[in-house]
Simulated scan of single mutants.
Amino acid sequence: MGKRVSYPISVKEEAVQMRLAGIPTKEIMDKLGIKNRTQVKTWMKWYREGEIHRFHQPVGKQYTYGKGPEYQNENEKLKTENLYLKQQIDPIKKVYRMGKEVKKEAFVSIYDAVKDTVSVRAFCQMFELARSTFYRWKKQDLLPKQQVLIDLISSLCESHQYTYGYRKITALLRKERRINHKTVQRIMQTYGLQCRVKIKKRKQTGQPYYIAENHLKQDFTATKPLEKLVTDITYLPFGQKPLYLSSIKDLYTSEIVAYTIGDKQDVSLVLDTLKQLQTLPKGCVLHSDQGSVYTSYAYQKEIKEKSITMSMSRKGMPADNAPIESFHSSLKTEGFYLHHLTNTTTAIVEKTVREYIDYYNNIRIQLKLNSQSPKEFRKLAVL
C-alpha cells in the first residue's frame, strides 16, 4: 500500500478554486503536484456539501460521526464558518422573487447557475424541498428541449428525403452539438423517421472467369484522386423508352467523374463516358465487368491510348464492382422509387439522373468520407 500524502490547506483551496474556474483536473494535478485525481474530487465534494472544515483534518482522520475539526485558533474557526455560511446564503440571493413562492422554472435555472458550488441535497434543504420534487421539475424542464431536438432531426430527415439513416443524421448534428447516436436512433424509430430504402436483392454468384486481370480484388481503397476508377452500365426503366446510364466513379473521393445517358447499350455509350476523362495520373486503374462493350476492340483501344490499366470482375461476381453497383442502387432508390417516378417521361428521367448525380457529388455526405460530400472531401485532399 502506498504512503499517504498530506497536502497543505492552501493547496486544497487553490485546487477547488481552479476547478470552479473550469480548469481540467489533469492540469490542476500537474501544477499543484497532486498525485491522485480522486483527491481533487474529494475536496470538491467537501466544498459543495459545506464541509470546508474537513480541509483541516489530518491524513487518516475523519471529521464525521460526531467529531468536529480542531482549529488552531478562534479566528481560523470563524473564517471557516463564515465561508460555509456565505455558500449557503449566496444561492438564496439569486432566487427570483425572494420571499414568495418560488416558480419551478426559476428554481431549476437557479440551481443550474450554482451547481458547481452546491450539491442537490444542500440546495433542496435550503428551500425545504424534496429532492424527488426537484428531479421531477428538472425532467419537465427538459421536455421542451427534447422537442426542439425532435423537430431538428425531423427537419434534417425531410430535407434529405429520408435517405439518411441515424448514423448520417448524427454526423450532421455533431457539426453543431454533442449528441449520442443512440438518442438519434431512438427518436427516429419512435417518430417513424428511418431511412426509406428498397429491399436489397441477392444475386446468384457464378464461377470466376478472367478476361483481364482483376487488379482491385475487392480492395476499393485508394490513396489519391483518380488512382482507382470503377465503371458500369445500368438500365433506367422509368420513362417512355428504355434508357441506359454509363458512369465512372473515383474510389478515393466516391465522386462520379463521368457519365453518359443513352438509349442504346452499345460501345459508343461507354466510349462517350470514357472520353470525358481528361488528365489521368500514371498507373490509373479502370475496373469494369466482363460486358461485351468493355471487351470490345474499340473500348480497349481507347483504354490503351489513355495509358489506363484495365481491370475486370470475375464473371457473375457483382461484388467485385460493388462501389458502382451501390451508386446505381442509390440512384434508383433515392431518385426514382422514393418519389414514385416509375412511369414518367424521358425528359424527366434524364433530368432526375442529372440532378441526383449533382446532389450525390456536392451535397450528399458519406460516413467513410468523414461525413463530408465527395466535393468537400476532394477539396481538402487537394490542400
Score class of each variant (00 low, 15 high):
Lys379Thr: 12
Val230Met: 01
Thr279Gly: 04
Leu142Glu: 15
Asp30Gly: 15
Leu331Ile: 05
Lys332Asp: 06
Tyr96Ala: 09
Gly291Ile: 03
Leu172Pro: 02
His328Cys: 00
Gly165Trp: 03
Leu331Glu: 01
Lys86Met: 13
Thr234Gln: 09
Lys12Gln: 07
Thr345Asn: 01
Tyr299Val: 00
Ala347Met: 04
Ile233Trp: 01
Tyr252Asp: 03
Val184His: 02
Ile324Gly: 01
Lys79Met: 11
Thr223Leu: 12
Tyr84Ala: 12
Ile256Lys: 03
Asp320Ile: 04
Lys264Trp: 10
Thr352Leu: 03
Lys175Gln: 13
Pro58Phe: 02
Gln207Lys: 13
Lys104His: 13
Val184Gln: 02
Gln189Lys: 14
Leu280Met: 08
Trp46Ile: 05
His181Leu: 05
Asp320His: 05
Met310Leu: 11
Asp272Cys: 14
Ile233Gly: 01
Cys157Gln: 08
Glu74Leu: 13
Ala258Pro: 03
Ala130Gln: 12
Ile363His: 13
Val353Trp: 05
Cys284Tyr: 05
Tyr210Gln: 15
Cys124Ser: 09
Gln194Met: 12
Arg178Asp: 15
Arg354Pro: 09
Ser329Trp: 04
Tyr7Ser: 00
Glu350His: 07
Tyr164Met: 09
Tyr71Leu: 09
Ser307Thr: 11
Gln72Ile: 09
Leu369Lys: 00
Asp116Pro: 01
Pro323Trp: 04
Asp116Ser: 14
Asp272Glu: 13
Leu243Cys: 11
Leu280Arg: 04
Asn73Ala: 03
Glu105Trp: 06
Asp289Val: 05
Gly33Asp: 05
Ala122Arg: 15
Gln62Asn: 15
Ala298Val: 10
His160Asn: 14
Tyr164Ile: 05
Lys304Glu: 14
Asn75Thr: 12
Ile365Glu: 00
